[in-house]
């Protein structure tokens, strides 16, 4: 499935996703925008913590090991995509209009899954 949405470096130009992917939405609406007093006055909103986890980007030993591994593999995968970066592929699912051979429905499914995968990525320390 991941190969289906590879950009193959071709086409050029900036990608214009037709709809915002969940990851993009999370980046934007959870810590930006007006904050009103209501936050402290009404404590009804229980934003699920798992959703917020998806935003966490921490450079850690696991990140370093992943980079080391990616560098080690560089020669043998010279012409290919370095790592099957699921998240990136998911994001490109949002840019399906620009990508040849991608089923519309597949893009939708990918977007729906995005939250799950990012969450896993943030939580699972061993990475890949």
């Amino acid at each position: 499935m991941t190969t289906a949405v590879q950009p193959a470096g071709g086409g050029g130009g900036v990608q214009r996703p037709s709809a915002s992917a969940l990851a993009d939405v999370i980046d934007t609406i959870l810590d930006k925008g007006l904050v009103i007093d209501a936050y402290v006055r009404v404590s009804l909103v229980g934003i699920e913590l798992v959703t917020i986890d998806a935003r966490v980007v921490v450079a850690s030993v696991d990140t370093y090991l992943r980079f080391a591994e990616a560098v080690n593999r560089l020669d043998i995968s010279e012409k290919q995509k370095g790592l099957p970066d699921l998240l990136e592929d998911m994001n490109q699912g949002g840019a399906k209009a620009k990508t040849k051979g991608v089923l519309e429905a597949a893009g939708e499914t990918l977007r729906n899954l995005l939250g799950e995968d990012e969450r896993e990525r943030a939580r699972r320390p061993e990475g890949r």
């Binding site: 969940l22 609406i29 959870l30 909103v45 229980g46 934003i47 959703t51 729906n112």
Partner: peptide
């Protein structure tokens, strides 16, 4: 919105953003 309900499903986040955008 129902008081005491939880919020933050992916659909809630995208609904908030989609409406404003």
């Amino acid at each position: 919105i129902i008081r005491g309900g939880s919020l933050g499903r992916p659909q809630d986040l995208t609904a908030h953003a989609a409406l404003l955008d």
